[in-house]
Amino acid sequence: MSDIDQGIQYMKEGKLEEAAQYFTETIEKNPNDPVHYINFGNLLLHMKDYDRALGFYKKAIELDDQAATAYYGLGNVYFEQDDFNHAKENFQKAINLGLEEADVYFMLGMTFLYDEQFKLSLPYLQRASELNPDDVDVKFQYGLALAQTQQLDQAKETFNKVLHIEEEHSDAHYNLGVIALFDEDVDKALEHFDKALEIQPDHLLAGNGKKQIEKMLEENE
């Protein structure tokens, strides 16, 4: 196992000090290899040491301005600090340089979503879902973006796909309940809100939705 592989293995095992020591040694041995700086940046990002992570990613880019994963790392640092413009710029750069992975499309989509640019988030979340069709989080966020842009039929289909992967997904049930209300299917909405509360009894939105329906039904008696 190489130093790089061992360092990443330490990270996976949660042995962060050992990982830091390994990456430090590999940089000392190979100071002109951008991969080591990217790996150390990933470790620092995981530790929420954003300033230092930024420095390591930028050093990697100094050594190789085509290092797509370094731009992806930069994007994550900026995203974590709510600097969405710089996050978008770096995620897009990573994609432009050929990083064809679900994670980078997902993060670019999430950046647009957090910045309330819902329509712009859609193609990236859709692509992430295509690249990783069994990822519940990706599919759920894509469903949210569809719902935010009033594409309710597609959102409904997507949330149902989420439930096909993870039957006990309370937020998918809640959102299907909201869509059912838009469709004026009160019984179906109540069914989904009840299911969300069965899975997660403290689901405030589902609880509020159920109360609103019950109040409405009482008033109509």
Rank of each mutant, 00 (worst) to 15 (best):
D82C: 11
T24N: 06
G14H: 09
A53T: 04
K58C: 03
L217T: 13
Q126G: 08
A60Q: 01
K215M: 10
H46C: 11
F56N: 09
A128N: 01
L205I: 11
A180F: 08
D33L: 07
F91G: 07
D134V: 14
D134S: 14
D64A: 03
L131G: 11
D5N: 09
S170W: 10
T69P: 11
T111W: 07
K58E: 06
H169V: 00
K29P: 10
L217N: 10
G73V: 00
L205K: 15
N32K: 10
V178Q: 10
D183I: 06
Y50S: 05
A20E: 07
E25S: 12
E28I: 10
D103E: 15
L152I: 11
V136N: 09
Y124S: 00
A189K: 11
Y71C: 01
M107W: 04
G55W: 01
D103Q: 14
H46N: 14
Y57C: 00
A147W: 06
K88S: 05
Y114K: 14
K215R: 12
P31A: 09
A147C: 08
D137F: 11
L120G: 02
G73W: 00
A155L: 08
L113G: 07
P31T: 10
Y50K: 07
L217F: 09
L163T: 01
L146M: 05
F159E: 00
A145L: 12
N30L: 11
K93N: 01
D137M: 15
L122R: 09
A180H: 04
N208F: 11
L197I: 13
Q126E: 14
H164Y: 13
Q66Y: 09
K215T: 12
D153R: 13
L131S: 11
I8M: 03
R52L: 09
A172I: 12
Y57K: 00
A20T: 02
F79Y: 15
E218A: 04
G75W: 04
T69S: 13
A94N: 02
N42C: 05
E214N: 15
G109E: 01
M216Q: 15
R127S: 08
I8V: 10
K29Q: 15
K59P: 05
A60C: 03
K195H: 13
Q154G: 08
D153S: 15
H86F: 15
I8S: 03
G41K: 00
E130A: 06
K59W: 09
L113I: 12
H203Q: 08
H36Y: 13
D65K: 01
F159S: 00
D202T: 12
A60Y: 01
D171T: 03
L54A: 06
P123R: 02
K188Y: 06
F182P: 01
M216S: 14
L197Q: 08
F40L: 15
A87M: 06
D137C: 12
Y50M: 05
L74Q: 03
K139C: 03
H203E: 07
L74R: 03
L122Y: 13
L217P: 08
D185K: 14
A189R: 13
L99E: 15
F140K: 04
I8E: 04
L125E: 04
M1I: 12
E101N: 14
K58R: 10
R52F: 09
Y72E: 14
L190F: 14
